[in-house]
């Protein structure tokens, strides 16, 4: 579903990603594991078209997306949930969802606000609350829900559990499992092994902008402990 070949990225003259290769399939969770600064977030931004294109090829559903602007990529059914969540703080929960809304898509679940409120009951109880008045956990759920309003076929999640209370982490994990069961492809950036272990089918270990290892989570896990 999502195919990355020889992906590089740089901020100015400082190269931060070197020749990444990986493939994520429908109905699976692929974890990109790595410490702070390994290049996980940069890889997601690069896939989403938020950084200027450099070398490398990115295919989504068979089509090249590496030179497309972000909104085109989103309209192909690739969703992105950034690490900082970037909720629209002046907009209510419903309005935040409205920004993410796209027409129904063949081969993907069709999300409506009401269905999302079933997945995240908390959000249903605060539909008119402004994004800026929500807790970190609520914002995280809203960020995921907002991206799902685009009826994505694949979704990029950047450390969704970071800084959240354990009970909220549990809810987020539950939601991701539910999405996976519906056949969504999930690319999960994570440095928390415990969280990744609950969800990931396969993993790539990212170290200083390069893929150190990839394979089953168990295989990668032992290496991760050493870096």
């Amino acid at each position: 579903m999502l195919e990355v070949r020889g992906l590089s990225a740089a901020y100015g003259k400082a190269q931060v990603l070197f020749e990444l290769d990986f493939v994520a399939h429908a109905g699976e969770v692929l974890a990109l594991l790595g410490r702070n600064g390994a290049g996980k977030s940069t890889a997601l931004k690069r896939i989403m078209g938020l950084l200027p294109p450099r070398t490398g090829e990115i295919r989504f559903g068979g089509a090249r997306i590496d030179a497309l602007p972000p909104f085109r990529i989103a309209r192909l059914g690739l969703g992105y949930v950034p690490e900082e969540r970037r909720i629209f703080t002046d907009l209510s929960v419903r309005e935040n969802l409205e920004v993410g809304r796209q027409p129904p898509r063949d081969g993907a679940a069709h999300w409506t606000p009401d269905r999302l409120f079933e997945l995240f009951p908390n959000l249903g109880r605060m539909q008119d609350r402004l994004g800026g008045r929500m807790s970190g956990g609520e914002q995280q759920m809203l960020a995921v829900a907002r991206t799902l309003m685009g009826n994505p076929r694949a979704i990029l999640l950047d450390e969704p559990a970071e800084g959240l209370a354990p009970i909220v982490v549990e809810q987020v994990a539950l939601a991701i499992r539910e999405l996976k069961a519906q056949g969504l492809c999930v690319l999960l950036c994570e440095q928390n092994l415990h969280f990744a272990r609950q969800l990931a089918d396969r993993a790539c270990l990212l170290e200083q902008g390069r893929i150190r290892a990839s394979g089953t989570l168990e295989a990668v896990e032992s290496l991760y402990a050493m870096v």
């Binding site: 989103a74 992105y80 920004v99 993410g100």
Partner: peptide, 12 residues
């Protein structure tokens, strides 16, 4: 107005 990059990444 608040965050155009994020709106862009959401398909706007």
């Amino acid at each position: 107005t608040q965050d155009r990059d994020m709106a862009n990444a959401l398909g706007v």
